[in-house]
Each structure stands twice: as structure tokens, then as C-alpha cells.
Design a protein around this nucleic acid. Structure first.
Lengths: 409, 409
DNA sequence: GACGTTTTGTTGTATGGCTGAACTATTGCG
DNA sequence: CGCAATAGTTCAGCCATACAACAAAACGTC
């Protein structure tokens, strides 16, 4: 720019505005990513010709790109299927198995764990340890997590796989660069930089790419593995209530990745006081501990205990869950009005209680969402299993690989 | 020369299968856009060498690209300034004046109008007609707007300018393609397709690229002309209350562009009934007509009348405005928690009343926004003048031109 | 005021990556 | 068995950029 602040005149300084110049090399990187994505996102293993048709590239170009990806261990050729039509049989392509893996890490209030996924989505390693981490010591907990992760990495590399990186899910506010946890109220952590503490390394000693992210956001990404629309809202119900916004299969993060804090939406200004200082926050109606206590159970009981009470037709449990459903519905209607998505995925606690809260939430949302008459809002339970954030974190690493495969070939 | 309908990505969500193959031609288009943007966004007219340094391209490449843009009427060379240092003096580059223009159109409750901006941001044509359009007939009103626009287009083309396209701002829900207005409660319109009704054409008869968008969102874009951070929330206070979310200088639209409907956020479930069917919506506390009536004025009075009362220390006006400020603050805190931005720009009615509502809003937001302790929320009045959506619409057209200049050279 | 220095902008020539068309490979079908 | 159909490969051509040398237009300095 004209008055370039501090640019050295000699070297190749990165452009300040983020948009980089396109050279021929850029072109190849983009098309490499395009081809990788086409294979990665296809429902049936496509041939080179299929990829060419899907991307608009010529078969010649696709061939060279595919060859490179196969050599780099990102794609694999399957044995040619017996064709039922004329012509040379196609060679189906698939993401490679057991070559590159992504690591999902998580520290949450009730457990900590590691999960590794390869490019086809298979879980190739997993270690989960349960136990309360309420008001725990970050250094001590992260050291334990480091142990779990190091074990998994050693096991994976022993089996000939490369670890592409890791994502650490935490139930709190994480800064923009994915380096620093500002605060996680339910863990009792604040101002923690977990990456250097974890200090994860590959077998050859080279440091692993590790980034921290919010738990609800990574859990949202786990849903993308299943049959879900390209835009949705994921609500993670636990002790706190968080959310992830996915638009066009991509996380929307806002300015600093601190969006989706639905737990502190005002449900009723005259409601009970919340730990955040305000009154009538959603968490005071639909937080896990409030739900448990409302059903007459200790705050540390498993959610399944509430389900048992509901099955028995317990009045207190039913009333509490309905009250929570109405509050959640009201908050979600606000969310839908402000963010505009037509699918809401209820995860965590709410997935378990879906049979009892689902229709209550859907009813209130339908009533208050402005766009509902034109596009009804679909409320559904989460499809990803337990510890969804682990899967989401691992998937996120692999997504980054597919989005920029040049580094790995 | 003809106003070719552009396929450039506009303010609306891209189709799902976005990524296209990159060929050499793509490369040139991208770099052309990069160079155009560099000049367009620079604070001081940069030289070719400055642009090369900023983009990372070589001076040779920048030269050929700039030459093409100059020939196409997107850039202009300024007379070389007398250099105060050694070396051949640089030729400063600027967006071209009076060559390509963007058209902003608007139909709102109190007025309709047209405004044309050229690439340097000068207003080169304007026609605004005031008068109530409450419960008006779409066909009749759009015919009047068509007259205004056609007059402006003829005037501009008479002066040798090309019209690149137009954006029509409407106070309601607009569909994803920017073609159809679903509903605009305060106009009493629903299910309108304004583009064929307007049927705007260039002098040679070729159809103009016209897209419809929400008024608050286009008004938000108008703020980008001034000194505003790259991410902010714009709130447009009028009869209804809408908002635009800008992240990284780009509108965030959600799945279908229906986000930001803050007017129907629940402030108090026990509050008054709203026209949308629910109770206690923000609009019932901070809508323009509620404000006016609360101050003892007729609903059709200008906002300035309230300012006069406030200056005189009128108790009813003061109480009403403070109540509105608290409600708005509460809704905005929710917004900030859900979307994560640290700057709130108050526009429309609230810009005029800023001296009285600003600190009230800021106080409530600071209290309820979860991230406030780490990053205080800045609440400020809008900088763009009246009818901001007109400016925003025109700017949006020009942004699309700069983002894909290949069509216009 | 001639000359070296510095910075800008403009020539060439080289190179990398994609296209398009021709070619080979492998099947089904009559 | 020959032909049509489809998949994948080879190779010349093209296009946009990089790189390097050069021309242009200032300043500084003795």
C-alpha cells in the first residue's frame, strides 16, 4: 500500500490484507484441494473421470493431481469394479485409510480424552478417562492429557500413520488464534495457554500443529459426518449451554470465535440470578445441574437418571424438563431470528432428553421465529455419539489437510 | 460497453457447489481483482510499485493489470507528484471518477429514493421523495421508483457514465437470490418480486443487474466508507428494528439472508403483544412509533420532535427513551453473546437519539455481554448520513465490480 | 552541470500448469 | 470379431506470471 508501515523492500513480505497474489503455484494448490475435496465429499468412490466432470478440470489434469495425492497418501485407488456398461472400467478413488490421521483432544467437566480419525472417518485410536474436573488444576490436567495423547501418537506412528495435527476442545472462551483459553467457568480455568504445556510432538521430535477451540463448536462439526443440512445450529447442553453455528458446512466464528454463548441469553429478566452476574439466563432454566436438581436428584447424577424418572411419569422431572424446553425454545427462537438457520441440532444433555424436550422446543421456536411461516425450523437430536467434540476436532484437522493438501504430498 | 449482467458473487449466499476449477484465466481474474482492491482500499493513491509491494506481485505483472484496469475505466492515473526523494517519480493511481457508477434504490415506510455513487465514492446523482408508504401498493410504488431510477440512469449516461447495477433496499425479509421480498410488515407488502416490475435498463436497452436486499444490511455496508472496525453490528432503528452483521468487512447473511431480526427478540415474556404474534418483543419497547407515542407525540411525527422534548427535559420522553435504551441494550447483549462482535453501530432513529440512549445501551451491554471483561463493547452512533441504505446499496454494486473487474474491462 | 544513485515503470525471455486433441486400454454388444 | 463406449495417458500449445535487464526521471554532490 502507499504508506506501507514497516515493509522491508527486499524480501517477499506477506500481504497485509490477507488476500495473496496468485501465481501458477497457487493455481495448482487450489486444484489439488479441489480434487481432494471432490473425492473426500463424494458419496460413492468416484473415478478420475467423475472428478473431472465434477470439478470442470480436464481428465488429463485430474490424472496428474490424483497421482500426486495418491503418492502423498491422501487418496487410494480401489480395485476396478466390474462395469455393467460398455467402456474401460473405472478405477474408484477413496480417501486413503490408515495413512494420515487427525487428533481430537478434549478436557470437559466430566472427562478428558483423545480420539484419532483417519481420512475415511474410521476411529483408529481412542482413550477416554472419566472423572470430575470441576475446579481442577490446568497444569496437572493437561499433563494427564499429554500422557494420553503421547500414547496414542506412539501407537499410531507404530502402525505407520502420520499425525497431521490436533484440536483441543475446551468448554470456554478461546481466543482468535486458537492459542489461549480466556475462561472456562465450569472447569475453574482462566488465562491458560495449553499448547506449550501439552507440547505434543511427532516421533521424529517435530512439533505437532495443535489448536484450541470451543467444545460446542467442534461438536457441531462432528455432525457434518452424518446426514445433516449444510447450515444448522448445534446446541451443546451440559453444565453450561453453548452452541456452534455452521453455515454452508463451515463454522461461523464471528470476530473472535466467541459466538454461540446461548447459555446467557435472557429468558426472563425477573428470573433467578446467574453466576455470570445477570438474571434469568437460560442456564438457570436449562443447565444440566438445574435440570437434575429440579428433578430432585443430586447435581452430580447422570442425565440418564432423569430419563428414568421421566419414563416413570415423575411430575417434578416432567415439569422441570418442560420448563427447560420452553426456555430453550425461547432462546433458540431469538438465535434463529438473529442468525438465520432453519435446522437446530440438540446435542449433549438435550439429545438424551430429546423425547421429552424436542417437541416443546420445536413448538416455541415455531411460534417465535419470524421466518417460520416461510421456512419451518427443523429441530432434531444430534447424530454423533458421545464425546462428539473429539470426533469434531479430529475431523477439523483432516478438513484442513484436504483444504490444503500441498503441504502433505 | 453494454451493462452486462454480472455473475459476480454478491451479498447473497453462494450456491452449495461453489468451488470452480482454476485455470490460467481464473488466475488473471483474481489478480486483477487483487490489484483493483488494493487501489480501491488504499488510503493514499498508491503507485504501481506500491501495489506490487502490497500484493506480492511483480511490478511487471501489476503494470499490465493496471493498464487493463485503466483502459476499462476502473482506475485512473493522477499527475505525478513532485517527489521529495531520489528516483523516478511515481504515478499515483486512484479509482476512476465518473466512469462506472453503482445505483442504490430504497423503498421505506417514510420515503423512496435513488442514489448513485462512482468508484471514488462521490454521489453523482440523487432523487429522494418523502411521504408515507404504510400499507401501500407495491406495483404503484415500484412504478414511481422506476421513474426516479430511469431519470437518474438517463442523466448519468448522458454524462458518459456506465451504470454497473443496482441494489434495492427494502425493510423486510428478502429471499436468498435477492429476487423476492417475502414480507415487509410495515409496508404491508408480501410476496413481491420487484426486479421484473422495475425492469431497469441501460440506454442501449440491455437489462441492468438489480438485486433486492434488506435495508438494515445495506445500511450497515454504508458504514464501511468511514472509520469503522472491520467487524461490527449495525442496528437500524426505524418503525421496525433490523440489524446487519459485518465480519471482516463482509456481510454475514446466514443461511438465507434473514438474520439480524433483532426487533423480535424477547425482552420480557410478560410484555405487550407484538404484531408478530409473540409478546414482549424489542419493537414494543424501542420501535419508532412506540417511542413517539411514549413521548406523547403522534406516531407520524419526526424523530427530531423527540429530541426537542428531550432537550427541554420532558419527563415522559426521557422515561420512554431510557426504557427503550435498556430494552435495546438487553437485546444487543444477547446479540453480542450469540454472534460475537465488539462494536455496535446505532443507526436510524438511534443515531439521532444517541446522546440519550447511547450510554444506557452501553451500560446494559457491558453488564450482560459475556466477553465484556476481556474485550469491552464499543457502542457508537452511525457515521453515514441519512438514507444510509441508498449509499450502502450503491457501494455494494461497486464492491462487486471491484471483486470481479474482468467483466468490466 | 556531468555523473553516480535511487526508484519507477517497461521491455523481453523463461517457466510452470492447464487445455485440447490424439492415442491407448479395456470393456459390452451385436 | 469388429464397433462403440468409456477411462486414463501422452504431448504440443498457450497463457499468465516471474525474473532480469533496461529505460526514464528524479536527487545529490562535488
Amino acid at each position: 500500500m502507499p504508506a506501507t508501515p514497516t515493509t522491508a523492500p527486499t524480501a517477499h513480505p506477506a500481504p497485509p490484507t490477507g488476500a495473496a497474489a496468485s501465481r501458477q503455484h497457487t493455481l495448482r494448490e487450489r486444484n489439488l484441494s479441489l480434487v481432494a475435496s471432490a473425492v473426500y465429499e463424494a458419496t460413492t468412490p468416484p473415478s478420475r473421470a467423475d472428478v473431472a466432470a465434477a470439478t470442470g478440470l480436464t481428465r488429463a489434469t485430474v490424472s496428474t493431481l490424483v497421482d500426486r495425492l495418491v503418492a502423498g497418501g491422501l487418496l487410494a485407488e480401489l480395485p476396478p469394479v466390474v462395469a455393467q456398461r460398455a467402456g474401460r472400467p473405472a478405477v474408484p478413488l477413496q480417501p486413503a485409510r490408515r495413512t494420515l490421521v487427525g487428533l481430537g483432544l478434549e478436557v470437559n467437566v466430566d472427562y478428558l480424552g483423545v480420539r484419532a480419525l483417519d481420512l475415511v472417518g474410521d476411529v483408529v485410536a481412542e482413550r477416554v478417562v472419566t472423572g470430575s474436573l470441576h475446579d481442577s488444576d490446568p497444569g496437572e490436567v493437561l499433563a494427564r492429557l499429554r500422557g494420553l495423547a503421547a500414547g496414542a501418537i506412539a501407537e499410531l506412528e507404530g502402525a505407520g500413520m502420520r499425525v497431521a495435527g490436533a484440536r483441543l476442545a475446551l468448554p470456554g472462551l478461546v481466543d482468535a488464534r486458537g492459542a489461549r483459553l480466556e475462561v472456562a467457568p465450569n472447569l475453574g480455568w482462566s488465562s491458560v495457554e495449553p499448547v506449550p504445556v501439552l507440547d505434543l510432538r511427532a516421533g521424529d521430535g517435530s512439533p505437532l500443529d495443535v489448536e484450541v477451540a470451543n467444545e460446542a463448536k467442534l461438536a457441531a462439526l462432528a455432525e457434518l459426518a452424518g446426514d445433516v443440512p449444510s447450515s444448522f445450529l448445534y446446541v451443546s447442553g451440559d453444565v453450561g449451554v453453548g452452541a456452534g453455528i455452521v453455515v454452508d458446512r463451515q463454522l461461523f466464528l464471528g470476530q473472535r470465535g466467541w459466538n454461540g454463548e446461548i447459555g446467557h441469553v435472557v429468558v426472563d429478566p425477573a428470573g433467578p440470578r446467574c453466576s455470570c452476574g445477570a438474571t434469568g439466563c437460560l442456564e438457570q432454566y436449562a443447565g444440566k445441574e438445574v435440570l437434575l436438581r429440579g428433578a430432585g436428584l443430586p447435581a452430580s447424577a447422570p442425565v440418564h437418571a432423569v430419563v428414568d424418572l421421566l419414563r416413570d411419569g415423575d411430575d417434578a422431572a416432567l415439569a422441570t424438563v418442560q420448563r427447560a424446553g420452553r426456555a430453550l425454545g425461547s432462546a433458540l427462537a431469538t438465535f434463529v431470528n438473529l442468525v438465520d438457520v432453519s435446522t437446530i441440532v440438540l446435542g449433549g444433555t438435550y439429545a438424551e432428553l430429546f423425547g421429552w424436550v424436542g417437541h416443546v422446543v420445536a413448538g416455541v421456536v415455531e411460534e417465535r421465529a419470524l421466518a417460520a411461516p416461510f421456512a419451518p425450523v427443523d429441530v432434531r437430536p444430534a447424530a454423533a455419539g458421545p464425546h462428539a467434540a473429539l470426533t469434531g476436532g479430529a475431523r477439523e484437522v483432516l478438513r484442513a489437510v484436504v483444504a490444503d493438501p500441498a503441504v502433505w504430498v
